[in-house]
Amino acid sequence: MKILTSQLLDELKRITEQHLQSADTFLQKPDHELNFRVSADSWSILECLEHLNRYGNFYIPEISRKISSSKSSPRPVFTPGFLGNYFAESMLPKEKLNKMKTLRTMNPIHSRLNKEVVNEFAGQQQQLLELLEKAGHIDLEKTKTRISISKWINLKLGDTLRFVIYHNLRHMAQTEQILKNF
């Protein structure tokens, strides 16, 4: 798969802007609705967002550092790496979301959460939009980032951006399901 770099970044910006709009909607909801669980072992909306915030706390600084230190020039076309493409594609929501195990440190279940989680999420989405803008000025293939589960694996920045934003998309789809069940 090859994609125009500008097209990829535009798609990721569009998705991130939708997440920002969802955050605004969540801020209008009462706390009991944001803490509602479909079942005892499922996540609430706030737990979904807290999970995303925890990943954002790793990836946003990592992406920012790599963009700031990159000396490369942008390429017109982005070609995903094999592993990066696999990770990114596995995050895309499907009709019936397949459950995935999450690392214990990234699992917020039964945390005491409030709307500060939504504000943090919105702030992270704003930071992602800024990083996506900056990413258009460097090579998304030559610039590499670490991943949260292994310090020995590096992905192309384009794949990391896809992974992070598709992961957000996956859990935002989960929040929509929670709202339907409320």
Rank of each mutant, 00 (worst) to 15 (best):
N57R: 14
I45T: 08
E89D: 12
E116K: 06
S70E: 05
S111M: 05
T105F: 12
S69G: 08
V117Q: 03
I63N: 00
G81N: 07
N85G: 14
I67H: 00
E116P: 00
E62L: 01
P74E: 03
G123P: 01
L46G: 08
N85E: 12
A135D: 11
P108C: 01
Y55D: 04
T79N: 10
L83N: 07
K71T: 10
F78G: 00
A135N: 07
E62Q: 11
W43P: 08
G56W: 00
K71G: 07
Y55F: 15
Y86R: 15
M91L: 10
L97Q: 13
L132K: 04
P74K: 07
A88L: 08
L113Q: 01
K99F: 06
S39R: 15
L92D: 06
T105A: 15
F58A: 04
F58P: 03
L49R: 09
Y59V: 03
R54Q: 11
L49H: 03
T79P: 01
N57G: 09
E130H: 13
I109H: 04
F58S: 02
K115T: 08
F58L: 04
L92T: 13
G84C: 06
L92E: 11
T105S: 14
Y55W: 09
S64M: 04
Q126S: 09
G81K: 06
Y55S: 06
A40C: 10
H137T: 12
N107V: 06
V118W: 00
R54C: 01
G56E: 02
V118G: 02
V77R: 01
P93L: 05
S44H: 11
L132C: 10
S44Q: 09
C48P: 03
E116Q: 12
R112N: 14
S44V: 07
I60N: 09
Q126Y: 03
E50S: 11
G81W: 00
H110G: 04
Y86D: 06
L128V: 12
S42D: 09
E95M: 10
S68T: 12
G136P: 05
R65G: 02
L128C: 08
R104S: 15
V118Q: 07
S111L: 02
F58C: 03
S69N: 12
S70C: 07
A88Q: 02
N57Y: 08
S72Q: 07
E62F: 02
L46K: 04
Q127A: 13
R112T: 15
L92Y: 11
W43N: 06
A135Y: 03
P74A: 04
R75S: 12
N53H: 04
K101D: 14
S42T: 12
T79L: 10
N114R: 06
F121M: 08
E133T: 14
F87N: 05
Y55I: 08
V77I: 15
L128Y: 13
P93D: 03
N119G: 08
P61K: 05
K101Q: 15
A122M: 09
V77A: 04
